[in-house]
């Protein structure tokens, strides 16, 4: 495969909620990821410059229906509990559709901000909800959400960054908590947090970038940890991390593009590895990863929209609120 089946992928995202999908039991088992799924679908479409493929007002109404008045955050589905992960997804989708200023959103904003701020713990980290799970994913999610809302303060970011730095290992990578093994997705969350807070100069970029470039294996794909199989989602986690460090070119693009294109289902959708089952998560990160490659190569092979490696949204969207300077 040398071609990106853009139209098919657009249709794939459009059909995620179709009757055919809803006839399947598995569709209902995934409600706990629905809002995250909307975000992945919306970013996939935005990357293909086809945001109109989904009905904006329906998406907007659905996002608001996921708001959990008890916690103040968004759940992944109507009536589900608020969680930091789905809360960021909601904010991102609203931002992409330029609807954060809608009165229905503005009403809720103080509660949303309060929800996120109260998740920060004494050691600077953030828990995902009131039950105490701590992970550098949640720090990124909280810091990213607050920065989009214009509510990030030095008082919150300083201890968060200190905690992130404790998660760095000798190999230059970062883990989910201090002591945990380096993992490419956690590296993204940590580097993106450092980028948002303007603290990237507190690490040695070459060392981390070298570890990231070593994630590329024969066949062109990227793995998330040493001696693991490649998986398409690392086309995002590794490429975004390298882009943040200004070292996207430290992997071989030809091999990586070939790996990504092979993961496509010609009928639409993209999977973790060739010939596997597709899903919207991998579809989103494949396209966003390809966009980063295009940006680094300054080519327009696939005609994708430039994506911000820190926020995983089009740069045309993030430019509105961030002063983070592109490498």
């Amino acid at each position: 495969m040398t071609q990106l089946f853009k139209q098919k992928h657009v249709e794939y995202v459009q059909n995620l909620n179709s009757q055919i999908s809803q006839d399947s039991y598995e569709y209902w088992l995934l409600e706990h990821l629905r809002l995250n799924g909307i975000y992945w679908g919306v970013v996939a479409l935005a990357t293909m410059d086809n945001l109109k493929a989904l009905p904006e007002n329906e998406v907007f109404d659905f996002v608001l229906s996921c708001w959990d008045s008890r916690s103040g955050g968004f759940g992944a589905f109507p009536r589900h509990d608020g969680h930091i992960l789905s809360t960021l997804s909601a904010i991102q989708v609203l931002l992409i559709y330029n609807r954060l200023d809608d009165p229905k959103v503005v009403d809720k904003k103080p509660a949303i901000v309060k929800f996120i701020k109260e998740l920060q713990l004494e050691n600077g980290s953030f828990q995902g909800d009131r039950f105490g799970e701590v992970d550098t994913r949640f720090i990124y999610t909280a810091i990213s959400a607050l920065s989009i809302l214009g509510e990030l303060t030095e008082e919150m970011s300083r201890p968060a960054v200190d905690f992130i730095l404790l998660c760095q290992n000798f190999d230059g990578g970062f883990g989910m908590v201090p002591g945990a093994e380096s993992h490419a997705a956690q590296v993204f969350t940590c580097l993106a947090t450092l980028a948002i807070t303007g603290q990237l100069d507190r690490i040695k970029p070459e060392k981390t970038a070298a570890w990231l470039s070593d994630r590329q294996v024969e066949g062109g794909g990227l793995n998330g940890r040493p001696e693991k199989l490649p998986d398409l989602c690392y086309s995002w986690w590794v490429m975004s991390s390298l882009s943040i460090l200004g070292k996207a070119h430290w992997v071989d693009f030809t091999g990586l593009i070939s790996f990504i294109l092979k993961c496509q289902d010609p009928n639409g959708g993209i999977s973790d590895r060739a010939d596997n089952e597709t899903d919207v998560y991998h579809t989103c990160f494949a396209l966003a990863g390809l966009s980063l490659i295009e940006m680094s190569q300054k080519l327009k092979e696939f005609g994708l929209v430039p994506i911000d490696p820190v926020y995983c949204m089009p740069t045309s969207v993030t430019r509105k609120f961030t002063n983070y300077t592109q490498q």
């Binding site: 006839d23 399947s24 209902w28 998986d231 289902d265 596997n276 597709t278």
Partner: peptide, 29 residues
């Protein structure tokens, strides 16, 4: 998120059978 699940394409017959089987499971769930 699907990880490591082989892509399968069901025949029309198998697809219809799955829809039938899933109906009750979906309703219960």
């Amino acid at each position: 998120m699907q990880h490591g699940v082989k892509r399968i394409s069901l025949s029309e017959q198998a697809r219809k059978e799955k829809i039938q089987r899933d109906k009750l499971k979906i309703a219960n769930y």
